[in-house]
Design a protein around this nucleic acid. Structure first.
Length: 667
DNA sequence: CGCCAATTATTTTTT
DNA sequence: ATAATTGGCG
């Protein structure tokens, strides 16, 4: 164990062995933060601390996975017993272990943003003054900002009176709906455990005694609730290690408060503070560019990141005609570079500001037979057919989930239209039960036509049968049979003519069923609810093996904490980064600059910035100009390029060459 | 009452 | 380009 610590620099080592009491590690990008944390954990276990008492909290699943893997590599199976999880999955665990005292039943559903929006939309619609005037998106965002952790009201002191009243009403309806549907939203996963901690000292005490040593990664991204949660949890033993970097705070829009990290030593008395400033990741030019840009931000702790490495290559800058040309350029560069340097495709990353930029890159990579993976993206679960499929499962698992039921009660069309649904709703209100339950007694309502009644009963029986089968048969099997019975292909045929498209959508469902099977094989205590909750948190560990040797496409947010030998940052345009929508708030520009900083500091050796001169938005071509942040990079660090043509004079020759290479990669 | 076609809004980032 | 929503037809 000692030999391992020798590889650390003095500050890192100090951070690794300062185990007792509060500790703040201010670690700039690429200063070996994860290495330090992993060594710290190894050291703790070496000192005889039971891994079960160690909790490491991260923000994203990627970060949790990465840490888990590195700890495992270093310490082996023994480490499995420690808890590495995101805030939200930790909250879910606590909620699952205490659901009755939190006021929910065992089968609660987690609502994602789309579910939340559906509820908000409905609430808005029921208020005549609000319909059309307020966008559900904005209302949800505002409500989340105004939400108070310790009671069910919202904080209206910043809103004007009319809006305030409206927000209160919508919020009330929103909470009622979730409660009735036995559903929680993402924030509830943090808020409810926090309330449990406050209300039931025995619960708090039991978790305090489990998690005696706490490490919080990316501490600059904690919001008020997370801060309070961690503070309570650490309050007994005070062994809290916060790791973070104020320059990488990119979750302000989600309520993250940089002051949590800036004031750490005020909140935790006698905290030790350690700074990590030697960068081991990037070459000099990349680091200089990053430093130059981030220094334009006010309100930051000054730091002096430095490296022993040489300057390395200059930062490439490429101006593309449009987004297709941008993708073509990036992929050609990857191919040429890969052939010349024989690097794994896994050492390349394409970073984006938004998920929607990924499409052209996927198309070109696929056309050129380059293995790639879209990380996060999350788009898969947003596909209509997947949401439909999951809604069937959600409705099975939690019959109170009216949102799920409404989504699928007439998909595919089975003659249960809007007015029937409305009747059903009224009937449910009279019976004071969920919509699904209401179907069983809807015959009492004589206005329902016999045909409709038969359809309703068919549906009810189909779902009830599946629910029965769930008690005996594997989940995947029940799901597959239910899906066949539903005859979903009918729905697809009504919206698409292209048989390929239809087959593709059905394959997506197959993949989903496969992942249920995978979940069942892996989990000792598998349940449909467990699977769905995991899906809601995006937790399924799509195995790292799968990603190996593939070009990674992801947003900058997803890339935080990761590093790549070669980074292409695409869409570096005004309006994308900084994003138009972010410039509305005062702190917006600074956060976008930090985002740019995070993107740049992912690169180890080669960094290429790309922007388009024009881009298609909503089917319309619009002119674009380069991002202001490019101007903030000293010119001597940049090298403009024309792409493959610079290296190979003839355009056609270059194209031929690329085609040859692409053929090589096919197999 | 249910279904289809025309109209309209949608794209920030994650859990 | 595409998804969601609304109004009119069968």
């Amino acid at each position: 164990m000692k030999s391992l610590l020798h590889k650390l620099n003095p500050q890192q080592r100090k951070a690794a062995i300062t185990v007792d009491g509060p500790l703040l590690v201010l670690s700039g990008a690429g200063t070996g933060k994860t290495t330090t944390v992993v060594n710290r954990i190894a050291y703790m276990i070496g000192q005889g601390i039971n891994p079960e008492h160690i909790l490491a909290v991260t923000f994203t699943n990627k970060a949790a996975r990465e840490m888990n893997e590195r700890v495992k590599k270093m310490i082996g199976k023994h480490a499995q017993k420690m808890q590495v999880s995101t805030f939200h999955s930790l909250g879910l665990r606590i909620l699952r272990e205490n659901y009755e005292r939190a006021g929910y039943n065992k089968y609660f559903t987690i609502y994602d943003t789309a579910d939340q929006l559906a509820v908000i939309r409905k609430a808005l619609r029921s208020i005549s003054a609000a319909w059309k005037k307020y966008k559900p998106d904005d209302v949800l965002y505002t409500l989340q900002r105004l939400r108070k952790p310790h009671d069910e009201s919202i904080d209206l002191k910043y809103e004007n009176e009319f809006d305030g009243e409206l927000y209160s009403t919508v919020w009330k309806k929103y909470r009622e709906t979730l409660k009735n549907n036995n559903a929680v939203d993402y924030e509830d996963l943090l808020v409810l455990p926090l309330r449990l901690f406050k209300k039931y000292p025995d619960i708090l005490k039991s978790y305090q005694n489990i998690f005696k040593y706490i490490i919080v990664d990316e501490y600059q991204d904690t919001n008020a609730v997370q801060f309070e949660f961690i503070k309570l949890l650490a309050n007994k033993y005070k062994n809290i290690c916060a790791v973070g970097d104020d320059d990488q705070s990119i979750y302000g829009w989600r309520g993250a408060e940089v002051k949590n990290i800036l004031d750490f030593d005020k909140h935790f008395k006698n905290a030790a503070v350690i700074r990590l400033e030697e960068n081991y990741r990037s070459t000099g030019n990349i680091l200089k560019a990053a430093n130059a840009v981030i220094s334009a931000n006010k309100n930051r702790k000054p730091k002096k990141l430095w490296t022993r490495m040489g300057d390395g290559n200059r930062i490439q800058l490429f101006a593309a005609i449009d987004e297709m040309a941008e993708a073509e350029f990036v992929v050609s560069e990857i191919i040429i570079h890969q052939i010349e340097n024989k690097m794994s495709f896994g050492s390349y990353a394409i970073l984006l500001r938004m998920n929607t930029q990924a499409r052209p890159f996927e198309d070109v990579l696929r056309a050129r037979n380059i293995p790639y993976v879209v990380v996060g993206g999350m788009k898969f679960y947003d596909r209509k057919e997947i949401r439909d499929f999951l809604s069937y499962l959600k409705s099975l698992a939690n019959p109170d989930d009216d949102e799920a039921l409404l989504r699928i009660i007439n998909v595919p069309k089975r003659g249960i239209g809007n007015s029937t649904v409305k009747l059903l709703g009224e009937h449910a209100a009279i019976k004071n039960c969920g919509l699904f339950q209401a179907i069983s007694t809807i015959h009492e309502n004589s206005t329902v036509k016999p045909n409709t009644l038969a359809e309703l009963n068919n549906f009810y029986n189909m779902m009830t049968d599946a629910k029965e089968k769930l008690k005996r048969e594997p989940i995947a099997m029940v799901a597959r049979n239910l899906w066949a019975e539903v005859n979903y292909i009918k729905e697809l045929e009504s919206s698409f003519n292209d048989p390929k498209k239809i087959a593709g959508r059905m394959e997506n469902i197959d993949a989903m069923i496969d992942s249920i099977q995978y979940y069942e094989n892996r989990e000792k205590k598998s349940s449909l609810n467990g699977f769905l909750q995991q899906v809601s948190l995006n937790e399924e560990d799509d195995d790292e093996e799968f990603k190996k040797g593939k070009v990674a496409i992801m947003t900058v947010h997803s890339a935080k904490g990761l590093e790549f030998r070669n980074v292409f940052f695409a869409g570096v345009e005004q309006g994308i980064i900084p994003h138009n929508k972010s410039l509305a708030t005062a702190s917006g520009e600074d956060e976008e600059r930090r985002l740019f900083y995070v993107a740049v500091t992912r690169a180890k050796s080669n960094l290429t910035l790309c922007y388009c001169k024009s881009r298609t938005k909503f089917g319309q071509k619009i002119e674009k100009i380069p991002s202001m942040f490019i101007d903030e990079i000293p010119e001597n660090l940049l090298a403009e390029t024309d792409g493959i043509d610079t290296k190979i004079a003839d355009d056609d020759v270059a194209d031929d060459l690329l085609n040859q290479f692409s053929a090589m990669f096919a197999e």
